[in-house]
Design a protein around this nucleic acid. Sequence first.
DNA 1: CGTCACTTTCAGTATTGACTGAAATGTGCG
DNA 2: CGCACATTTCAGTCAATACTGAAAGTGACG
Lengths: 163, 163
Amino acid sequence: MEIRDEGSLIEAMARSIGTGLPPMAGRMWAYLIICEPPEQTAAEIADRLQASRGSVSSMARLLEHAGLIRRGTRPGDRRERFSVSADVVENVMAPRIHQLRAARQTLDAGLELLADRPPGSRERLQSLRDMYAFFETEWPSTMERLRNSRARESPKERKDVTR
Amino acid sequence: MEIRDEGSLIEAMARSIGTGLPPMAGRMWAYLIICEPPEQTAAEIADRLQASRGSVSSMARLLEHAGLIRRGTRPGDRRERFSVSADVVENVMAPRIHQLRAARQTLDAGLELLADRPPGSRERLQSLRDMYAFFETEWPSTMERLRNSRARESPKERKDVTR
DNA sequence: CGTCACTTTCAGTATTGACTGAAATGTGCG
DNA sequence: CGCACATTTCAGTCAATACTGAAAGTGACG
């Protein structure tokens, strides 16, 4: 996985998000992280990624819905500008808790369903459930530690309290 | 996502692993967790999941390579038996560290590549990199805590030290 | 209200990837 | 060795999904 230029970087970043988003959504997100200026029009994005306008439009909807990007307009300019939402990190990680919860709930339902089965299979299922439950309860404090470490690493950000 | 019977449980569990495995691999893994006896032949699996023998064969290779299942034979029986590996939990979670590392490395390469860009884009990239780095360093101790909580919840397992 | 500049929608196409099944290959036993 | 049974491989089919582009929609401005 060679990173030779901006293009290959975008591809690699897009793959690294991993979630079930279409490739083009990943590329768009990646580009919005490294572009300058941080706000880009649909036309600029479509041009840079060699994608159709239609594709940019629907990927934008997807990413916005996932909380990964924002859209904005300027007075005297009808075009929309897209940018990664201010709290990239939070928004990339926040959804994980839902996946954990969903998995744990599925396994709870499974345990109930298999209540009268021999203990072997129930134990395997139980240990898996316990694992998800563990991460589910750990998650909030992990996120808290992440926030702290971020605050520590870039203290100058603390001045940005205008909004 | 109703869990009404074993079939729907298998589907739901299969989806909950989430990793980029083909659906049939997920189903096979799920079935091996809840089946009785825990060892199953390819024929039994194919039959239960309504899959072709060929599919079972290739999914088995995939899952084995991912460390999620084991294969074994018995004297006087040519058929192979598949089962989830003893340490299901470890094997489900272990690969995560590689993903984190790969993502962080990609972003490091990106930072190097964009060294002479305006600070805005570099900062966005940096904060993402720091996030992955955070999880990367946290991971070992999290796994350690998981192991402790497992030992606590099922102390009777501690007797199983025959191997 | 018509036009311009843009955005969204969506039917159709292309691409990807999963799955099947038949043929090839392997394995142990008499 | 050769047979019986099991497994793997892989070319071909099918299904799911991503993407395109043309048409419809939107709204600001003269």
